[in-house]
Design a protein around this nucleic acid. Structure first.
Length: 314
DNA sequence: CGGATTTGACCCGCGC
DNA sequence: GCGCGGGTCAAATCCG
């Protein structure tokens, strides 16, 4: 590979302004040098146009997702208005909203995907603010009644309850290393999407992962004083998962596919899946207000850097 | 036979 | 104080 070419992940080939010939160009070739500069300027303009188009596409994807989030939120609010069940536990709902604010991402306020966890006990958070809560969404077959999320750890089921706002029962698991390991797990199908299994983890494992094969990045609060924190929880995507759900997809709380979902079995790496993954990543990038400015700064810095270098040569 | 799962009973906190 | 609902316990049952 030619070291003078910079092949970016965006498919851009940024050709340095200074070619090897430039360094040896005599001062008498000012006219041809001017042509080269014009050519470089032209190419930079094309690159700039290309970048602008890419950014536009990214923003469009972002806006599409944002509108979908808005629709889901509107639906959720209507459901809450027509149901007075939640009013019975006003305090719980307020606490719940606080927790959702902690768990969900700063820009995504979608709570529809986790509304089935409204009864989530926030008292525990008050009692133990160091308790780490993380949540994993796993695609499963809607007809599959099993509440099994194979994350590589060994769990012992100690209870199952039917909750009031979800026809699907909730299963309670303790880590098989208990009582030395305090981690608990709750698994329940999403009320809105029966194809989605919601696994809520409480606490941290204090032992080695039995099968440390892969890691899934989760978004979870560490304490109520922190908005959110990226933590990595070892999630082993085992063949048994593929048996349970043909196309398991680990999602973070805002339903975005986790960065490490590339660890999923090969059958999930279909072109449509990859396309969706790219769209999600693009959406995540555009959510960062510093992204576009950083990108522009990087480009302008590169241009100015080369310009200064060239000026320095003269 | 031992470990895992099931399931009804019980506990506890909260709202009325 | 009572009822509701989530969470947990523990005896019964299942299964390899």
């Amino acid at each position: 590979m030619d070291s003078t070419w910079v092949n970016t992940s965006l498919g851009l080939n940024l050709v340095p302004f200074c070619s090897a010939d430039d360094h040896q160009a005599p001062a008498t070739q000012v006219a041809s040098h001017h042509d080269v500069l014009a050519e470089e300027l032209n190419r930079v303009s094309v690159e700039n146009k290309k970048l602008t188009e890419m950014l536009t596409a990214l923003c469009e994807n972002y806006n599409t997702l944002q509108s979908q989030v808005g629709e889901l939120m509107t639906t959720q609010q209507q459901q809450n208005k027509t149901s007075d069940i939640y009013r019975k536990r006003k305090a719980d709902s307020e606490d719940y909203n606080n927790v959702i604010g902690l768990i969900s991402t700063g820009t995504n306020t979608d709570t529809s995907s986790i509304s089935d966890d409204k009864e989530y006990s926030c008292k525990r958070l008050k009692e133990n603010t160091n308790l780490k809560i993380s949540r994993v969404y796993v695609h499963t077959d809607a007809s599959d009644t099993g509440l099994i999320v194979n994350d590589g750890y060994q769990w012992r089921k100690y209870g199952q309850k039917v909750t009031r706002d979800n026809p699907s029962p909730r299963a309670y698991y303790k880590c098989s290393f208990a009582p030395s390991c305090p981690v608990k797990k709750k698994v329940q199908k999403s009320a809105e999407n029966p194809c989605l299994l919601v696994a809520t983890y409480e606490g941290e494992h204090n032992h080695m992962h039995p099968e440390s094969r892969a890691e899934v990045t989760l978004i979870a609060p560490v304490s109520p004083n922190q908005n959110q924190q990226l933590i990595t929880s070892p999630i082993s995507v085992l063949p048994s998962v593929a048996k349970i759900s043909p196309a398991p997809t680990f999602l973070s709380d805002d339903n975005r596919i986790s960065p490490n979902s590339a660890m999923c079995p090969p059958e999930t790496q279909a072109p449509t899946f990859q396309q969706f993954l790219v769209q999600q990543m693009a959406s995540s990038l555009t959510k960062d207000p510093n992204f576009t400015s950083a990108l522009a700064a990087a480009i302008s810095g590169r241009i100015s850097g080369h310009t200064m270098a060239r000026n320095g040569e003269k």
